[in-house]
Design a protein around this nucleic acid. Structure first.
Lengths: 223, 223
DNA sequence: ATTTAATGGTAATATATATTACCATTAAAT
DNA sequence: ATTTAATGGTAATATATATTACCATTAAAT
């Protein structure tokens, strides 16, 4: 039993925030269809009335929750260090983030509800992965000006790198067939992926090695 | 109004088949949660009674429907032709199949319902993509005996080829952000992917070209 | 001091739907 | 001919739950 009545000055939006927090937590836990409004009200310590006064029903709340976490992208690309090292650093942060259970769950729910809420997936992708891809393409373009990766559409290159990075394991993870990788496993994962990307299958066996210098990257070889 | 009563000899299982057919069609169209049993009964021209006599409720029917279409895999790999041509032929059939709207929808539903039915996704993957991956690894192993792709774990190689093949576009398609590709678009898609896989970024610009022979594949170059 | 806005708590309302029950009907089994 | 198995059609049952309504309560606004 929480104190009734109008909230004190400056605290009007606290309950709205709590509703969004609880909504995110519970939607991730139960999905859309299996979560009822009473659970949210109880968890956020508000009454149903308050939820309905702030949001347009259950679907409106869901949209607001998704919007609030749709602007996550990775931008840890440095043009000043070795290409391979830059890609590995970027890849590790990216893979670590997108493999967290919450991130997997949010995509699961978005995919599952894409019929009911077709716009949400569009918005999620545009404000997340697409921005990351843009940063990657930008990076490749700068590398091109330095003489690497010549004669290539940088967007396609970025897409291809994304695919190498995700690899089959990401696909299985999204299907619930793989455990969440820890930081060390992400390192191995990304090293292998970057090697495949940079050296093709000539050097993929060096997957876990940090010494890529023994083999001339293809991009430099053709300069 | 359909004829009541016990069905004639030899036709006892016809209604069961119709239930499965209607179930697949309607689950694909509406998903699990938005489809009710009456719609299935009506579409299959049976009564609810018959559905419940053949299946263990809605969840049991769903499981049976998924099982019936969980054994699709691609096995069009020839060791006797040029490696690149073999991979392209295989890739085209694979990508064409997995990009059909029904195939996309079934994965959408499996992912969305993976909380409620964790075993279904496992089974689906084991009887579909995993078998395809096994065939691929087998293919690479035979190629290794011919001197290609040396010193590589063939399973990792197969996984990496899968990733190149799917590419970012598959990911977007699964999120509902891309239209279904037609046969010609699949051809372009697969040619680019195989080029990325075989030649890395040195030759990806030849994406739509069918003449890969101008560039020595990496695998042969290191022989 | 009085009025108004925002809330909690609870119950009512409306609706959807999975599942079961019941009777009539048809054809197989005997 | 009689009994039994399998079905259609419909209604009943149980349940879940999104949404709204109502009154009491608190604090802001005046």
């Amino acid at each position: 039993m929480i104190k009734s009545g109008r909230p004190p000055k400056g605290k009007e939006l606290l309950s709205r925030d709590r509703i969004l927090d609880s909504g995110l937590k519970l939607f991730l836990e139960h999905g859309y269809g299996n979560l009822n409004m009473e659970m949210i009200a109880k968890d956020a310590h508000v009454s149903m009335r308050t939820i309905y006064s702030y949001f347009e029903g259950k679907s409106g709340l869901f949209g607001a929750v998704i919007k609030r976490c749709s602007d996550q992208f990775v931008d840890s690309l440095s043009e000043h260090i070795d290409t391979e090292k830059a890609l590995i650093t970027f890849g590790k942060e990216f893979i670590y983030r997108v493999t967290r259970p919450d991130a997997v769950r949010i995509r699961t729910i978005l995919i599952g509800e894409s019929l009911r809420f077709p716009d949400l997936a569009t918005q999620f992708y545009a404000q997340g992965p697409q921005l990351t891809l843009d940063k990657l393409a930008e990076f490749f373009q700068k590398k091109q000006q330095q003489g690497y990766f010549t004669n290539l559409d940088t967007n396609r290159l970025a897409n291809h790198f994304f695919s190498c990075l995700r690899s089959e394991r990401f696909h299985k993870l999204q299907l619930g067939l793989e455990p969440t990788p820890n930081e060390a496993e992400v390192d191995v994962w990304v090293n292998e992926a970057v090697n495949f990307f940079l050296y093709g299958y000539t050097a993929a066996t060096l997957g876990t090695s940090t010494e890529g210098d023994f083999i001339q990257p293809i991009g430099e070889a053709i300069l």
